[in-house]
Amino acid sequence: MSANPAKGPNAAQERTWDVFAEGLWRDNPVLVMMLGLCPTLAVSNSAINALAMGLATSFVLVASGAIVSLLRSLIPKQVRIATYIVIIATFVTLVDYAIQAISLDLYNALGAFIQLIVVNCIILGRAEAYASRNPVGRAVVNALGMGTGFTLALLLLGSIREILGSGSLFGFNLFGPNFEPWVVMILPPGGFIVLSLMLVVFNLVNKRLGAAVKQGGGHGHAA
């Protein structure tokens, strides 16, 4: 976003950063595109669950992005969606068994939502809209950006809900015994309400940024 994009040697680097940053803020999968909401809301009742889910999804996103990008000239147009789904399902099965082996507690906490990564629209969306049209390097960087954006949004949501709902963060007690937890925050309605408030804040920040850019002479942001 800084410097001028016209400079020669800097340009490639900048574009790589742009490809990465796209998923981080401007096209953040959760806050802007409203994709992958189901796992976002379902497992964000504690920070640790949210983080695990974010990382698992990011892994699938990057791995399937790479494979789809590598095979993009081999996959016939008519059956591409089915092919993508099978590729994604393969990696999700992998992650499912891996988490089960690493931590059974986590596996039980996340439940069916690990397998449901398959139907996370972010992953299929990226495969269709980006990985199938770009070389491997860019596809992986873009997937990493999206994954990071997703993980951060999830972590933020999970942290807020855990702090308010159980008075702790990553299992550490924050407020001592006198804190009365807002139980509703870790229940389903809390997920909707916190995400809704996050969206409002996000919109406000973006509005301010937009206004600031306009005042500064209208350069820089749009790209």
Binding site: P188, P189, G190, F192, S196, L197, L199, V200, N203
Partner: peptide, 21 residues
């Protein structure tokens, strides 16, 4: 303006969810 759209729908979802509890 800032609440319009997704944020508002999400809040509605929260209230509905609360009701369904």
């Amino acid at each position: 303006g800032v609440v319009r759209g997704a944020a508002l729908s999400m809040m509605l979802g929260g209230l509905l969810s609360l009701a369904f509890m």
